[in-house]
Design a protein around this nucleic acid. Structure first.
Lengths: 130, 130
DNA sequence: CCTTGACCTTGACATCATGGGAAGCCCCAC
DNA sequence: GTGGGGCTTCCCATGATGTCAAGGTCAAGG
């Protein structure tokens, strides 16, 4: 199977597959005489794993560790769980940060007339005039 | 005032001040004979505005628009408000996305024993085995 | 046999905001 | 006049992805 087909099956762009190979996240695959990469079910499976991990917000570096855990038959589920919980923490922290920004801005917007007049507490706050 | 002092007063790194100048977010300032940038209160005020806007999650491009609104005495507060509300929407959407990831992962983690055994629904889900 | 179109290859560049570092000039205090 | 710290510019790196370009390849149809 060529890279394009593998990409379609895994839900990852061909570009990213090459990229993942280049940064060492996945191992290089065999090539045809013409230099075309050849993929099998096993590789597509790995790519799908990567795709799902990405959808859960894991960084490529973290995905590398997840792949290592996945391929290690002797890992303890506790290790995986700890890894996941740490990521959940990070996700929630980031979400909270964004919500705090939204709350602050909402508060400012609530006090803005929003009409044709120029006075605006939003800009006044940004300018430090408040 | 030199760039370092301006940076300290505004809470922005000197590196970023030069960058903001280079990308046109702020106007070039006068220089000494030796080529040192010279800043006054007015410039520091603008830099502080930029810093606050960044803290609220605005992109540099958006900050450019905010600066334009700030310096336009004829703007309607409605324009500023609409801009802010759109940003609030984006922030909330992003936060919701992160929380959805966290929720999914938490659900998987809840079903992981987290002991010495290798079986782990988290990896199984990522692998598509579920 | 040749063309056409779809696909593959590599490589370079862009995004966005920020930091790091190097080479070299400048200023002030001692 | 020297030492240390600040300034200048320029280049490189991050992280994940996309775009574009130039050129090779393959399969199908005339």
């Amino acid at each position: 199977m060529n890279i394009g087909e593998a990409a379609r099956h895994a839900g990852v762009s061909a570009k990213m597959i090459r990229h993942y190979e280049q940064i060492g996240l996945i191992a290089p695959v065999p090539r045809t005489d013409a230099g075309y990469r050849i993929y099998g079910e096993r590789e597509v499976h790995t790519l799908r794993f990567i795709r799902r991990a990405r959808d859960l917000g894991f960084s490529v570096k973290a995905i590398g560790q997840l792949l290592a855990l996945w391929q290690d038959r002797n890992r303890a589920s506790a290790d995986v769980k700890a890894f996941a919980l740490a990521h959940i923490e990070a996700l929630n922290a980031k979400a909270a940060e964004l919500q705090a920004m939204a709350r602050t801005l909402q508060h400012l917007a609530d006090h803005c007339h929003g009409d044709h007049r120029p006075d605006c507490p939003i800009l006044e706050d940004l300018a430090g005039d408040g």
